[in-house]
């Protein structure tokens, strides 16, 4: 393994990808168990499940694109779009369940007016809960988060593929890096967040610094791995 200029570019790409994942998690409306009971705003599962789901879809999309071309831009774009489709489909079907099965009005408890639609929120927040469903601002925020996550996942996958030329090894290694960054970010938001309008969003620089150190250590070894055989 020789450390030439290209290797440094690969390391930087992995680090930027890890940072995109870490910051992207802050955009996704993660509601956790309370949201599953329609007692909090967001998607009713944990950060890691959402990050893994969108990340894997992004990786699959990026991998599929990588099987036809080596150009980095369509690969990054398909990774980002794949993750966005996954998160948007989850939020949309989740929204149908909240609206038509649970019967809860979509309301955010963190802001008085939805920053995008301008609709008033507090009258619709049921007493004893911190909002329900996925309001417009959370949906938009989640889409941005998925874009960053998918872009980050593809950005980790691409340099791995270029160094070891083994799709399954690169994918699983990328999932490893992805999970480390997603978990660090989810610890930073203490499990739940509504999106970029949530006061917790201001904590992102902490996740940025943490993911920078963690991904750098992973990236340095990632480029030394060979494809075997």
């Amino acid at each position: 393994m020789n450390f030439d200029a290209l290797t440094i570019v690969y390391i930087l790409e992995i680090v930027v990808g890890g940072l995109l994942v870490g910051v992207g998690v802050h955009f996704v409306p993660v509601g956790g168990a309370p949201a599953a009971m329609a007692q909090a705003t967001g998607i009713g599962t944990g950060t890691v499940q959402l990050a893994a789901g969108s990340g894997l879809t992004g990786l699959l999309a990026a991998g599929l694109m990588m099987s036809v071309t080596d150009n980095i831009w369509p690969i990054l774009a398909s990774g980002a779009v794949g993750a966005m489709i996954m998160i948007d489909a989850t939020m949309m079907t989740g929204g149908w369940i909240y609206a038509y099965a649970v019967g809860a009005p979509f309301a955010s408890a963190k802001v008085n007016y939805d920053p995008i639609t301008g609709y008033s929120q507090p009258p619709y927040v049921a007493p004893g809960t911190v909002g329900q469903g996925i309001p417009t601002v959370c949906y938009v925020s989640g889409t941005i988060g998925a874009f960053m996550g998918g872009l980050g996942g593809a950005m980790i996958y691409y340099p791995l593929m270029m160094t070891n030329h083994n799709p399954s090894l690169s994918a699983l290694f990328a999932i490893g890096i992805f999970l480390v960054n997603a978990v660090l970010a989810s610890w930073n938001i203490q499990g739940t967040i509504e999106g970029f309008h949530d006061p917790k969003f201001k904590r992102w620089p902490k996740a940025f610094r943490s993911c920078l150190v963690a991904t750098l250590i992973l990236a340095l070894v990632a480029v030394t791995i060979t494809g075997g055989a």
């Binding site: 956790g32 168990a33 944990g46 950060t47 890691v48 499940q49 893994a52 699983l172 290694f173 999932i175 490893g176 890096i177 992805f178 999970l179 480390v180 978990v183 660090l184 989810s186 610890w187 203490q190 499990g191 992973l218 070894v221 990632a222």
Partner: peptide, 19 residues
């Protein structure tokens, strides 16, 4: 108490482990 669910730390362990 880490604020997130227990599964997150298990996935972190395996993520670090696989690398």
């Amino acid at each position: 108490g880490i604020g997130t669910g227990v599964p997150s730390i298990g996935m972190l362990a395996l993520g670090m482990g696989i690398v």
